[in-house]
């Protein structure tokens, strides 16, 4: 299987405080990966590094003096960043990576269609983009994308007048127009009600399956990870503590990740009747 996302020795400190600690991973084409972990465990930070929205630490020195190998993040065979330096062509690479934000991040004052056609900014001539004057062919591409996420009847409406779930589906359509082969979604349903959440996650996983896209979704609710993703990567305090098939998630591990109290508070309880699927324990990299 060909590797789509590859991260080597990623460490990140914010003002001396560690957020990610020597994270390495690879993700292959067509995988649907859930990124789980408690709040503050580094999920957003990891995703933003993949999209080239954040840069890694410059060298191993920031991580405490030891000479770690150079941090390197590449997507679809292109280096996004290396040693804390964004690639020169990072803007071109970003076009191939769609990013879905928790807060949608649409242009509120613009119509739905206009928001979606902005996904073509990277491939139309710069002056056309600047004048917001997109060729008819691109507008048709945008309409088709809206149709796929079930939002075509809202094309002329202002983005700010939509519900959260609808805005998120528009954001997915924008990523489709981008032609992104990789979709990164940072807690895409954290501010949505359960029904909209299912609709958004369903749309996201459906279109990516149809197009053979690679998807990484950070999620707060383990239930959704189990329902929509085949592989889970769990972060705790900036380290990967689990990486394996969703089926291998155990209550023990979830307890470890979230703590037993917060597990209940967040409604993350796993069904006790669920068969305890502890298969190969070597897939759990140091749960402690």
């Amino acid at each position: 299987m060909d590797t789509v996302i590859s991260i080597n020795n990623l460490s990140k400190h914010f003002k001396g405080k560690p957020a990610l600690n020597d994270v390495s991973l690879t993700i292959s084409r067509g995988e649907t990966v859930a990124l789980i972990g408690a709040s503050g465990s580094g999920k957003s930070t990891l995703l933003r590094h993949i999209a080239g929205l954040l840069t890694t630490d410059k060298s191993g020195q920031e991580a405490g003096g030891c000479d770690l190998p150079v941090c390197c993040v590449s997507v679809l065979g292109q280096t996004i960043q290396e040693g804390g330096q964004l690639a020169k062509k990072v803007r071109q690479h970003r076009a191939r990576v769609g990013f879905i934000f928790q807060q949608f991040n649409l242009v509120n004052r613009m119509s739905v269609l206009n928001n979606v056609v902005l996904g073509a900014l990277a491939r139309v001539p710069g002056w056309r983009g600047a004048l917001n004057w997109f060729p008819k062919s691109e507008q048709l591409v945008a309409m088709r994308a809206l149709q796929r996420v079930g939002m075509d009847s809202f094309a002329n409406q202002r983005a700010s007048t939509l519900s959260g779930g609808q805005q998120q589906r528009v954001a997915i359509a924008r990523a489709l127009v981008q032609g992104a082969e990789v979709l990164l979604a940072d807690e895409p349903v954290a501010s949505l009600d359960p029904e909209s959440s299912r609709r958004v996650l369903g749309t996201l996983t459906k279109v990516s399956k149809q197009d053979q896209k690679t998807v990484v979704i950070s999620l707060h609710q383990v239930e959704y990870a189990r329902q929509y993703c085949t592989r889970v990567i769990a972060l705790k305090k900036g380290r990967i503590v689990f990486d394996g098939p969703t089926a291998n998630l155990t209550p023990t591990l979830l307890n470890e990740l979230y703590g037993s109290e917060s597990l209940n508070v967040h409604g993350l309880t796993l069904d006790a009747s669920e068969p305890n699927t502890i298969k190969s324990s070597n897939e759990m990299t140091s749960v402690i």
């Binding site: 949608f104 991040n105 509120n108 004052r109 613009m110 710069g126």
Partner: peptide
């Protein structure tokens, strides 16, 4: 946020200002 939304599409810095900044401050 909206600026990053535009940035994530692979747009140029000018486009980030036109679609990410100006609609907010207009």
């Amino acid at each position: 946020g909206p600026v990053e939304g535009i940035r994530s599409t692979g747009a140029s810095a000018i486009h980030e200002v036109i679609f990410g900044v100006i609609p907010q401050v207009l």
